[in-house]
Protein backbone atom coordinates (compact mmCIF):
# COMPACT_ATOMS: atom_id res chain seq x y z
CA UNK A 1 0.00 0.00 0.00
CA UNK A 2 1.64 3.21 -1.07
CA UNK A 3 1.16 6.28 1.06
CA UNK A 4 -1.81 8.41 0.04
CA UNK A 5 -3.71 5.60 -1.73
CA UNK A 6 -7.33 6.46 -2.43
CA UNK A 7 -9.54 3.65 -1.13
CA UNK A 8 -13.33 3.29 -1.07
CA UNK A 9 -14.83 0.61 1.16
CA UNK A 10 -18.44 -0.54 0.93
CA UNK A 11 -19.68 -2.25 4.09
CA UNK A 12 -16.78 -0.55 5.85
CA UNK A 13 -17.82 -1.47 9.40
CA UNK A 14 -17.74 -5.20 8.75
CA UNK A 15 -14.86 -6.73 10.66
CA UNK A 16 -12.76 -7.71 7.64
CA UNK A 17 -13.31 -4.33 5.97
CA UNK A 18 -12.51 -2.44 9.18
CA UNK A 19 -9.31 -4.44 9.62
CA UNK A 20 -8.30 -3.56 6.04
CA UNK A 21 -9.20 0.09 6.64
CA UNK A 22 -6.97 0.13 9.75
CA UNK A 23 -4.02 -1.29 7.83
CA UNK A 24 -4.54 1.26 5.11
CA UNK A 25 -4.90 4.12 7.59
CA UNK A 26 -1.60 3.19 9.21
CA UNK A 27 -0.14 3.46 5.69
CA UNK A 28 -1.52 7.03 5.49
CA UNK A 29 -4.27 6.17 2.98
CA UNK A 30 -7.20 8.41 2.07
CA UNK A 31 -10.47 6.64 2.68
CA UNK A 32 -14.11 6.90 1.65
CA UNK A 33 -16.24 4.64 3.82
CA UNK A 34 -19.77 3.47 3.10
CA UNK A 35 -21.94 1.58 5.60
CA UNK A 36 -25.46 1.32 6.93
CA UNK A 37 -24.79 2.15 10.58
CA UNK A 38 -23.86 5.84 10.92
CA UNK A 39 -22.78 5.54 14.56
CA UNK A 40 -20.45 2.65 13.76
CA UNK A 41 -19.05 4.65 10.83
CA UNK A 42 -18.28 7.59 13.11
CA UNK A 43 -16.48 5.32 15.59
CA UNK A 44 -14.49 3.76 12.76
CA UNK A 45 -13.58 7.16 11.35
CA UNK A 46 -12.25 8.37 14.71
CA UNK A 47 -10.15 5.23 15.02
CA UNK A 48 -8.72 5.58 11.50
CA UNK A 49 -7.80 9.23 12.02
CA UNK A 50 -5.76 8.36 15.13
CA UNK A 51 -4.13 5.53 13.19
CA UNK A 52 -2.82 7.97 10.64
CA UNK A 53 -5.31 8.14 7.76
CA UNK A 54 -4.59 11.18 5.61
CA UNK A 55 -8.33 11.68 5.04
CA UNK A 56 -11.53 9.88 5.99
CA UNK A 57 -14.96 10.59 4.49
CA UNK A 58 -18.03 8.64 5.58
CA UNK A 59 -21.33 8.03 3.83
CA UNK A 60 -24.40 6.27 5.22
CA UNK A 61 -25.57 3.77 2.62
CA UNK A 62 -28.31 1.18 2.19
CA UNK A 63 -26.95 -1.43 -0.20
CA UNK A 64 -30.35 -3.06 -0.60
CA UNK A 65 -31.63 0.13 -2.23
CA UNK A 66 -30.63 -0.62 -5.83
CA UNK A 67 -31.65 2.80 -7.07
CA UNK A 68 -29.06 4.40 -4.78
CA UNK A 69 -26.14 2.32 -6.08
CA UNK A 70 -25.22 4.57 -9.04
CA UNK A 71 -24.96 7.53 -6.66
CA UNK A 72 -22.75 5.57 -4.26
CA UNK A 73 -20.43 4.51 -7.09
CA UNK A 74 -20.22 8.07 -8.37
CA UNK A 75 -19.40 9.35 -4.88
CA UNK A 76 -16.70 6.72 -4.45
CA UNK A 77 -15.13 7.57 -7.80
CA UNK A 78 -15.03 11.31 -7.17
CA UNK A 79 -14.85 11.95 -3.39
CA UNK A 80 -11.10 11.37 -3.25
CA UNK A 81 -10.38 12.81 -6.69
CA UNK A 82 -9.92 9.38 -8.25
CA UNK A 83 -9.84 5.86 -6.90
CA UNK A 84 -7.06 3.31 -6.51
CA UNK A 85 -8.95 0.52 -4.71
CA UNK A 86 -12.65 -0.21 -4.26
CA UNK A 87 -13.35 -2.93 -1.67
CA UNK A 88 -16.88 -4.33 -1.72
CA UNK A 89 -17.27 -6.06 1.63
CA UNK A 90 -20.95 -6.11 2.60
CA UNK A 91 -23.11 -9.18 2.83
CA UNK A 92 -25.13 -11.31 5.19
CA UNK A 93 -24.98 -14.93 6.34
CA UNK A 94 -28.61 -16.10 6.32
CA UNK A 95 -29.86 -19.25 7.99
CA UNK A 96 -30.39 -21.84 5.24
CA UNK A 97 -33.31 -23.50 7.04
CA UNK A 98 -35.16 -20.19 6.94
CA UNK A 99 -34.34 -19.76 3.23
CA UNK A 100 -35.69 -23.26 2.54
CA UNK A 101 -39.20 -22.25 3.54
CA UNK A 102 -39.28 -18.47 3.15
CA UNK A 103 -39.00 -17.26 -0.46
CA UNK A 104 -38.87 -13.60 0.59
CA UNK A 105 -35.89 -14.30 2.83
CA UNK A 106 -34.19 -16.17 -0.04
CA UNK A 107 -34.73 -13.23 -2.35
CA UNK A 108 -33.40 -10.76 0.24
CA UNK A 109 -30.28 -12.92 0.71
CA UNK A 110 -29.67 -13.12 -3.05
CA UNK A 111 -30.25 -9.38 -3.42
CA UNK A 112 -27.73 -8.39 -0.76
CA UNK A 113 -25.11 -11.04 -1.51
CA UNK A 114 -25.30 -11.10 -5.30
CA UNK A 115 -27.45 -8.55 -7.12
CA UNK A 116 -26.31 -5.51 -5.19
CA UNK A 117 -22.53 -6.17 -5.21
CA UNK A 118 -22.66 -7.24 -8.88
CA UNK A 119 -24.43 -4.02 -9.84
CA UNK A 120 -22.03 -1.96 -7.76
CA UNK A 121 -18.96 -3.67 -9.25
CA UNK A 122 -20.24 -2.91 -12.75
CA UNK A 123 -20.93 0.72 -11.85
CA UNK A 124 -17.40 1.07 -10.45
CA UNK A 125 -16.01 -0.54 -13.60
CA UNK A 126 -17.68 2.13 -15.71
CA UNK A 127 -15.63 4.74 -13.92
CA UNK A 128 -12.33 2.85 -13.70
CA UNK A 129 -12.28 1.46 -17.26
CA UNK A 130 -11.75 4.83 -18.98
CA UNK A 131 -9.22 5.79 -16.27
CA UNK A 132 -7.36 2.57 -17.16
CA UNK A 133 -6.29 2.14 -13.55
CA UNK A 134 -7.48 0.98 -10.18
CA UNK A 135 -8.66 -2.21 -8.56
CA UNK A 136 -12.06 -3.67 -7.71
CA UNK A 137 -11.83 -6.15 -4.84
CA UNK A 138 -14.95 -8.03 -3.82
CA UNK A 139 -15.38 -10.37 -0.86
CA UNK A 140 -17.11 -13.56 -2.00
CA UNK A 141 -16.63 -16.79 -0.05
CA UNK A 142 -15.32 -20.33 -0.23
CA UNK A 143 -19.01 -21.22 0.16
CA UNK A 144 -19.43 -20.20 -3.49
CA UNK A 145 -17.20 -23.02 -4.69
CA UNK A 146 -19.78 -25.80 -4.40
CA UNK A 147 -23.46 -25.93 -3.45
CA UNK A 148 -23.96 -27.64 -0.10
CA UNK A 149 -27.22 -28.43 1.70
CA UNK A 150 -26.20 -26.38 4.76
CA UNK A 151 -25.91 -23.00 3.02
CA UNK A 152 -26.59 -23.11 -0.72
CA UNK A 153 -28.61 -19.89 -0.71
CA UNK A 154 -25.61 -17.91 0.48
CA UNK A 155 -23.29 -20.15 -1.53
CA UNK A 156 -25.23 -19.58 -4.77
CA UNK A 157 -25.11 -15.80 -4.34
CA UNK A 158 -21.34 -15.90 -3.68
CA UNK A 159 -20.78 -18.43 -6.49
CA UNK A 160 -22.72 -16.21 -8.87
CA UNK A 161 -20.64 -13.26 -7.77
CA UNK A 162 -17.45 -15.24 -8.43
CA UNK A 163 -18.60 -15.93 -11.99
CA UNK A 164 -19.61 -12.30 -12.42
CA UNK A 165 -16.17 -11.14 -11.30
CA UNK A 166 -14.53 -13.65 -13.63
CA UNK A 167 -16.34 -12.04 -16.52
CA UNK A 168 -15.72 -8.52 -15.31
CA UNK A 169 -12.01 -9.32 -15.03
CA UNK A 170 -12.06 -10.59 -18.62
CA UNK A 171 -13.73 -7.39 -19.76
CA UNK A 172 -11.40 -5.05 -17.83
CA UNK A 173 -8.13 -6.87 -18.61
CA UNK A 174 -7.41 -4.74 -21.70
CA UNK A 175 -7.90 -1.59 -19.62
CA UNK A 176 -5.53 -2.83 -16.93
CA UNK A 177 -8.12 -2.60 -14.18
CA UNK A 178 -7.46 -5.26 -11.54
CA UNK A 179 -10.40 -7.41 -10.36
CA UNK A 180 -9.80 -9.40 -7.16
CA UNK A 181 -12.16 -12.15 -5.95
CA UNK A 182 -11.55 -12.62 -2.20
CA UNK A 183 -12.70 -16.00 -0.87
CA UNK A 184 -12.37 -16.17 2.92
CA UNK A 185 -13.02 -19.36 4.85
CA UNK A 186 -14.21 -19.22 8.46
CA UNK A 187 -13.41 -15.80 9.89
CA UNK A 188 -14.21 -14.79 13.47
CA UNK A 189 -16.47 -11.79 12.83
CA UNK A 190 -19.80 -10.34 13.90
CA UNK A 191 -21.39 -12.17 10.94
CA UNK A 192 -20.29 -15.56 12.27
CA UNK A 193 -20.66 -14.77 15.99
CA UNK A 194 -23.56 -17.24 16.27
CA UNK A 195 -21.32 -20.14 15.18
CA UNK A 196 -18.91 -21.90 17.53
CA UNK A 197 -15.69 -20.07 16.62
CA UNK A 198 -12.19 -21.29 17.33
CA UNK A 199 -10.02 -24.12 16.14
CA UNK A 200 -7.46 -24.38 13.37
CA UNK A 201 -9.85 -23.51 10.51
CA UNK A 202 -10.84 -20.12 11.96
CA UNK A 203 -8.93 -16.99 11.03
CA UNK A 204 -8.93 -13.52 12.53
CA UNK A 205 -10.03 -10.51 10.40
CA UNK A 206 -6.52 -9.02 10.64
CA UNK A 207 -5.06 -12.04 8.88
CA UNK A 208 -7.60 -11.78 6.08
CA UNK A 209 -6.96 -8.04 5.74
CA UNK A 210 -3.22 -8.66 5.47
CA UNK A 211 -3.87 -11.24 2.74
CA UNK A 212 -6.13 -8.81 0.87
CA UNK A 213 -3.41 -6.14 0.89
CA UNK A 214 -0.93 -8.71 -0.41
CA UNK A 215 -3.24 -9.91 -3.20
CA UNK A 216 -3.87 -6.31 -4.31
CA UNK A 217 -0.15 -5.68 -4.44
CA UNK A 218 0.45 -8.87 -6.44
CA UNK A 219 -2.62 -8.25 -8.63
CA UNK A 220 -3.93 -11.77 -7.94
CA UNK A 221 -7.19 -12.82 -9.60
CA UNK A 222 -8.52 -15.03 -6.83
CA UNK A 223 -7.48 -15.04 -3.18
CA UNK A 224 -8.26 -17.94 -0.85
CA UNK A 225 -7.67 -16.69 2.68
CA UNK A 226 -6.16 -18.20 4.71
CA UNK A 227 -4.31 -20.01 1.88
CA UNK A 228 -5.18 -23.57 2.96
CA UNK A 229 -8.79 -23.07 1.87
CA UNK A 230 -7.61 -23.44 -1.70
CA UNK A 231 -6.70 -27.06 -0.88
CA UNK A 232 -9.83 -27.73 1.12
CA UNK A 233 -12.11 -26.41 -1.63
CA UNK A 234 -10.21 -28.27 -4.34
CA UNK A 235 -10.99 -31.49 -2.49
CA UNK A 236 -14.60 -30.54 -1.77
CA UNK A 237 -15.19 -29.72 -5.43
CA UNK A 238 -13.64 -33.05 -6.45
CA UNK A 239 -15.70 -35.30 -4.18
CA UNK A 240 -18.02 -37.44 -6.41
CA UNK A 241 -21.67 -36.56 -6.03
CA UNK A 242 -22.60 -40.01 -4.74
CA UNK A 243 -20.17 -39.63 -1.88
CA UNK A 244 -20.94 -35.92 -1.36
CA UNK A 245 -24.64 -36.66 -0.83
CA UNK A 246 -23.79 -38.89 2.13
CA UNK A 247 -22.11 -35.99 3.95
CA UNK A 248 -23.70 -33.31 6.10
CA UNK A 249 -21.49 -30.56 4.67
Amino acid sequence: MTSGSRIAIFGATSDIAAAYARRSAEGKARLALFARDAAALDALKADLVVRGAAEVQTFAADFTDFSALPGLARTALTALGGLDVALVAYGSLPDQKTLNTDPAALRAALDLNFTSPAMLANLLAEGLEPARAGAIAVITSVAGDRGRQSNYGYGAAKGGLQTFLDGLRHRLAPAGVHVLDIRPGFVATKMTAHLPQGGPLWAMPDKVATDIAGALRKRSAVLYTPWFWWGIMTIIRAVPRAVFHRTKL
Partner: peptide, 15 residues
Amino acid sequence: DRFIAFDPDTGLLTC
Protein backbone atom coordinates in the same frame (compact mmCIF):
# COMPACT_ATOMS: atom_id res chain seq x y z
CA ASP B 1 -10.45 -1.89 20.33
CA ARG B 2 -11.00 1.50 18.71
CA PHE B 3 -8.97 4.63 19.15
CA ILE B 4 -11.17 7.65 19.81
CA ALA B 5 -8.90 10.69 19.77
CA PHE B 6 -5.29 11.71 20.10
CA ASP B 7 -4.04 15.24 20.65
CA PRO B 8 -0.49 15.51 19.32
CA ASP B 9 0.05 18.73 21.27
CA THR B 10 -0.74 17.39 24.73
CA GLY B 11 -0.23 13.63 24.27
CA LEU B 12 -3.72 12.90 25.57
CA LEU B 13 -5.04 9.67 24.08
CA THR B 14 -8.62 8.50 24.41
CA CYS B 15 -9.34 4.95 23.38
